[in-house]
């Protein structure tokens, strides 16, 4: 029951945050991807950076249970799937999470996105049996690899001689620096800093 309560609290916080940062607005996502307005890119990079610093800082201080990490497997299909997702992401301005939340805020095009998504996920369920044994799923770097080893976990890593925690902290800081120096826009015209809605 506690987990369901946490699911409600964390899920609601995530949905609220997605809407507040503008990610439920496909216009902002499209204008990030066509490089005319990088506001959302700066937000996302800062978000990953902050989360990374808190996570690895917390791990170093013993405040975070390393067992809560969950590193996904690396295989060729990850990249190919990323490419496919990128195509739809650009056309619609939605990804799975922002499509569902946009639908909840009353966007009708998002309803069609979610319906297409349910059909796409269903097609994958049916296709999986036929592609499961292929090279698409050949693991890379031992599978569920991190960049460097993290204490208390047995994930394989690429850079064995380094501390995963300190690398995670450094990457977190680097992402925030990139967010800081990235211009809000590359082209000319309006930006999101003007009230856009």
């Amino acid at each position: 029951m506690t987990t369901v309560l946490l699911a409600i609290l964390l899920g609601a916080a995530f949905g609220f945050a997605l809407d507040r940062v503008g990610a439920t607005n496909p216009g902002y996502i499209i204008r990030m991807l066509n490089l005319t307005d990088l506001h959302l890119m700066k937000t996302i990079l800062t978000g990953i950076g902050v989360a990374s610093i808190l996570l690895f800082g917390g791990l170093l201080l013993g405040l975070v249970d390393p067992g809560h990490l969950s590193v996904k497997t690396a295989y060729y299909g990850v990249f190919l799937g990323g490419l496919l997702l990128g195509v739809g992401f650009a056309v619609a301005g939605y990804c799975p999470g922002t499509g569902l939340t946009a639908m909840a805020t009353g966007r009708i095009d998002a309803v069609f996105f979610v319906l297409g998504g349910l059909v796409g996920a269903g097609a994958y369920m049916l296709a999986y049996g036929g592609i499961a044994g292929t090279d698409l799923f050949t693991k890379i770097a031992g599978g569920d690899a991190t960049l460097a080893p993290v204490a208390g976990t047995d994930y394989p890593s690429i850079l064995g001689a380094m501390s995963g925690e300190w690398l995670g902290l450094a990457i977190g800081v680097a992402l925030i620096v990139v967010a800081w120096v990235l211009p809000a826009r590359l082209g000319d015209g309006r930006t999101m800093s003007a009230p856009a809605e």
């Binding site: 996302i44 978000g47 990953i48 989360a51 990374s52 996570l55 990490l69 969950s70 590193v71 996904k72 497997t73 690396a74 295989y75 299909g77 990850v78 990249f79 190919l80 799937g81 990323g82 490419l83 496919l84 997702l85 990128g86 195509v87 739809g88 992401f89 056309v91 619609a92 939605y94 990804c95 799975p96 999470g97 922002t98 499509g99 069609f112 996105f113 979610v114 319906l115 297409g116 998504g117 349910l118 059909v119 796409g120 996920a121 097609a123 994958y124 890379i140 770097a141 569920d144 690899a145 991190t146 960049l147 993290v150 690429i158 995963g164 690398l167 995670g168 990457i171 977190g172 992402l175």
Partner: peptide, 29 residues
């Protein structure tokens, strides 16, 4: 687009939240 995004996300084993945000914050390859 929704079809491509979810087919792609399932092939990849995650989406913008699970792979990109959660993955990169954990330094996942």
């Amino acid at each position: 687009a929704g079809f491509l995004v979810l087919f792609g996300a399932r092939l990849a084993g995650g989406c913008t939240s699970g792979h990109m945000m959660s993955g990169m914050m954990q330094t996942s390859l």
